[in-house]
Amino acid sequence: MIEVESLTKYYGPVQALADVSFTIEKGEVVGFLGPNGAGKTTTIKILTGFLPATSGRARVAGYDVFERPLEVKRRIGYLPENVPFYPEMRVRAYLDFVASLKGLVGKERKKRVEKVMERCRVADMANKLIGFLSRGYKQRVGLAQALVNDPEVLIFDEPTVGLDPTQIIEIRSLIRELSGARTVFLSTHILSEASALCQRVIIINQGRIVAMDTSENLAGQLQKTARLLVKVEGPKETVQEGLRCLTGVVRVQEKAFVEGIGSYLIETEKTEEIRKALARAVVSNGWGLLELRPADLTLEEVFIKLVSEEQP
């Protein structure tokens, strides 16, 4: 549904995108992840036909973004990062205006506007001026304008930025609910959002794609070692020494030591199962084993690893 081929973009001498390529299939929900300034918004602005690329190609729904912009624009619903509004318009009139620009006419237009207000839960604010709405409601009106013509492709740029936690949960559940059979491409710098909403994640940093996979696979790929968190009662140095001596242990890291109880993070070879040996060793030394659990690499850590590895 979205095909991007070696897209490059320069703002004057500054390179914003370097040879970005990816494909998104119909019906997929894909997260576009990266720190601020990585090139997420630039990519999205190119896809929506607002900005030209310096080189490369982009196709949405089978149409080239540069050659057939109107065809592309007919098929996408776009929610920009900070949704800009005409503050003097009322919600219903605004959505009607957007619907008419998107080519809906007559009764069909009225019906679509009412329906989308219902779905995005803004119907109770239909006659309010947009300028007076709260941030959360504005974001929902933004969603409604993207959805009003029932587009095949939805593109969201940081859909939850600047919202409070309740509003974030609301918008996320709306996105999940509304995505349905549509193709959704959403950018975010929040990893939990990507893993919560998306089947697949594309990670971009400094204008380059650094990883592209499902979020589980990404975490798995990078995890060359397994990690265990143990809490042991006993003298710090001897316990650390004892843990280090176990076969398969790569590194022991002290996390905390309070009142004779130490927490240690142990990195082990992925292939070795050392939990039994570890428990035996602790008990035979007369220390107390209080906790033993695997500590997975979170997506957050994967992200930081990927991003920092890429830097020169």
């Binding site: 602005k45 929506t48 036909g49 607002f50 109107l70 624009k73 007919r74 996408i76 776009y78 920009p80 900070n82 949704v83 800009p84 509004f85 005409y86 957007v98 620009l101 998107k102 080519g103 304008q145």
Partner: peptide, 14 residues
């Protein structure tokens, strides 16, 4: 200035 131009020009309008 308000930014509505950005959204306006992503609609299928000439």
């Amino acid at each position: 200035r308000v930014g509505t131009a950005e959204l306006l020009f992503t609609y299928p309008v000439r």
